[in-house]
């Protein structure tokens, strides 16, 4: 790895201190993201992906709190920065795109106003220049008639257009890191493809690294260079995209990939394989490996101890005592 390291998350913990107990939404995550690289973070809903991304920007709402770890961004720990310093980083060096373009934009301000706001905060420009830059950004993200769209309100736009506007807002200050939290989940498939295309395109143009968070494996395969699979606030498998898809070694990743429906299973009339059980209650986490109640390969050791994230081959880390062998043919990609 000769590429320059941009973001390194070390043992990050974000806990929610609720009346019913502590919820460990992010429980010791380690991630590395290099400049101009795309890191996919995959996992089921409710496994702490969004909280992890909000933790990076330090935007986790009460009662969520950082409970340890470091977030080294460009050599400095974000968790040690003052609120004022963080504010300067948000939107300019690290930008974020959210899941619901309908609710993520303020309904009472125009698109232009909202995109321009980011530019006015972080760049030393006057209103007129900011407006010009905003129109350029809207044009860049493929919004037709950007000058007219500037003064439109979010509700006057389609979902796809709104998400484009969100991207324009995020990209307007050329961030080094873009966090995309399920950015295409709320869109229909054709629009989703367009938005992904746009993100890839901009990533190359602006040379931004992307932390791409999704529950959709197909999107990760499409976008990411490296994939981290998370389960209940912990990374269970981490490797480059190709390896994860061709040779998944953690039973959870293996199960996820097997449960993707394909035309072949339909022809052979086999039932779609699924991972047994449900994700555990965050208030009542199982002892040992969090995945053992659902794991077909679980042993007594798994029920007692939490395995460490170990490198089982160069560049391929797995958190499992019994990594799956012989995974040939699991992925149809």
């Amino acid at each position: 790895m000769e590429k320059e390291l941009l973001l390194e998350i070390k043992d990050l913990k974000t806990y929610f201190y609720t009346d019913d107990g502590i919820v460990k939404a992010v429980d010791g995550i380690n991630l590395k993201l290099h400049k101009n690289e795309v890191l996919g973070l995959v996992g089921e809903s409710g496994c702490g992906k969004s909280v992890a991304s909000l933790s990076i920007l330090r935007l986790v709402d009460q009662p969520g709190k950082n409970a340890g770890g470091e977030i080294i961004f460009k050599g400095e720990d974000l968790l040690k920065k003052s609120e004022e310093e963080m504010r300067k980083i948000r939107g300019s060096e690290i930008a974020m795109i959210f899941q619901e373009p309908m609710t993520a934009l303020n309904p009472v301000y125009t698109i232009g106003n909202q995109v321009m706001e980011a530019i006015l905060i972080h760049q030393d420009v006057n209103e007129e220049e900011a407006k010009k830059k905003t129109v350029e950004m809207l044009d860049l993200v493929g919004i037709p008639d950007p000058e007219e769209r500037f003064s439109e309100y979010p509700h006057e736009m389609s979902g796809g257009m709104r998400q484009r506007a969100m991207i324009a807002m995020a990209m307007s200050c050329n961030p080094d890191l873009l966090i995309s939290d399920e950015a295409t989940t709320a869109l229909d498939v054709t629009i989703q493809a367009q938005i992904l295309e746009l993100m890839k395109d901009l990533q190359k143009k602006i040379e931004t690294a992307i932390l791409f968070i999704t529950h959709d494996l197909a999107l990760v395969a499409e976008m990411a260079d490296t994939v981290a699979v998370s389960y209940m606030g912990k990374i269970v498998e981490l490797s480059n995209t190709k390896t994860v898809f061709k040779d998944p070694r953690h039973p959870y990743t293996y199960g996820l990939l097997k449960s993707i429906p394909s035309l072949i299973t339909k022809e052979t009339k086999q039932p779609l394989p699924a991972i047994e059980g449900m994700i555990p209650s965050p208030y009542n986490m199982p002892k040992g490996c969090y995945f053992h109640p659902r794991c077909p390969f679980a042993t007594d050791e798994c029920r007692k101890n939490m395995p460490e994230l170990k490198e089982i081959e160069p560049g391929h880390q797995v958190r499992c005592f019994h990594p799956v062998e012989n995974t040939k043919g699991v992925s149809k990609k």
Binding site: L57, L59, R90, M96, F98, T103, A104, N106, V108, M169
Partner: peptide
């Protein structure tokens, strides 16, 4: 206060005062 667009504004680097009085209050 807990709407997504308030979070978006904060993620943009808007300061707390503006978040409250521009983004939240108007709604």
């Amino acid at each position: 206060k807990h709407q997504d667009y308030v979070r978006t504004a904060r993620a943009k680097g808007v300061n707390d005062r503006t978040v409250i009085y521009k983004h939240a209050f108007r709604n």
